[in-house]
Structure formats: structure tokens, C-alpha cells
Amino acid sequence: AEKTGIVNVSSSLNVREGASTSSKVIGSLSGNTKVTIVGEEGAFYKIEYKGSHSYVAKEYIKDIKDE
């Protein structure tokens, strides 16, 4: 089941290729951006990003809701 969340950062949140802080950064999301969460892996959520799937750190996503 998909969930949505809100990016909870003051500046921007790195979007990564994989579920690791050493993964390549492929983009960023600004605070209060709504994201669609399709899964989770460790400390990361797998999200829909620009037509494919990428990862963001869970600690920076708030207001998780089931869609």
C-alpha cells in the first residue's frame, strides 16, 4: 500500500539512488514537498521521484499517511 509523507527540512533533502548515505545523490526535495512512499529499506523510504524510484532518509519525512 502506498503512503504519502511531507519533507520536513528547512532547506533541502537529498534524494539518493540507493538506501544508503553513501549512495549517489540524484536530486533534492525542498521542505513541505509531498512525497509518495512505495516502500522502506532500513533507515530510508523508497519514494516515487521523476518517474522512477529513489530513496530519502526516514528521519526527514513527517505526517505519514496511508493513501
Rank of each mutant, 00 (worst) to 15 (best):
A1I: 14
E2M: 15
E2T: 15
K3Q: 07
K3N: 05
K3D: 03
T4G: 05
T4H: 11
T4S: 09
G5F: 06
G5Q: 03
G5L: 04
G5D: 02
I6Y: 12
V7Y: 03
V7G: 03
V7E: 02
V7M: 03
V7K: 02
N8W: 13
N8E: 08
N8F: 10
N8V: 13
V9L: 07
V9N: 07
S10E: 13
S10F: 09
S10N: 11
S10Q: 13
S10Y: 09
S10K: 12
S10M: 12
S10P: 11
S11C: 15
S12A: 11
S12F: 14
S12M: 12
S12D: 09
L13A: 14
L13T: 08
L13H: 03
L13Y: 03
L13V: 15
N14P: 15
V15F: 02
V15C: 06
V15W: 01
V15P: 01
R16Q: 12
R16Y: 15
E17W: 05
E17S: 08
G18C: 13
A19S: 07
A19H: 05
A19K: 03
S20G: 05
S20W: 05
T21Y: 15
T21A: 12
S22M: 09
S23H: 08
S23K: 03
S23E: 04
S23Y: 05
K24M: 09
V25E: 03
V25S: 05
V25G: 02
V25A: 05
V25D: 02
I26E: 02
I26T: 05
I26N: 04
G27S: 02
S28V: 13
S28M: 11
S28Y: 11
L29K: 00
L29H: 01
S30L: 14
S30G: 10
S30R: 14
S30K: 14
S30C: 14
G31S: 14
G31P: 15
G31K: 14
N32D: 09
N32V: 05
T33D: 09
T33V: 09
T33N: 05
K34L: 12
K34M: 12
V35R: 00
V35L: 05
V35H: 00
T36W: 13
I37H: 00
V38D: 01
G39L: 04
E40H: 06
E40C: 08
E40G: 04
E41L: 08
E41M: 08
G42A: 06
G42S: 05
A43R: 08
A43L: 11
A43I: 09
F44T: 01
F44C: 03
Y45D: 01
Y45E: 00
K46R: 09
I47F: 03
I47S: 00
I47E: 01
E48P: 04
Y49K: 00
K50D: 09
G51A: 05
G51P: 01
S52C: 08
S52N: 10
H53F: 13
H53L: 11
H53W: 11
S54I: 03
Y55P: 00
V56W: 00
A57P: 14
A57R: 10
K58G: 02
E59Y: 08
I61S: 01
K62L: 11
K62V: 15
K62G: 11
K62M: 13
D63Q: 12
D63I: 15
D63L: 15
D63H: 10
I64F: 10
I64V: 14
I64K: 06
I64R: 04
K65E: 12
K65I: 12
K65V: 13
D66E: 14
D66F: 14
D66C: 14
D66Y: 14
E67D: 12
E67S: 13
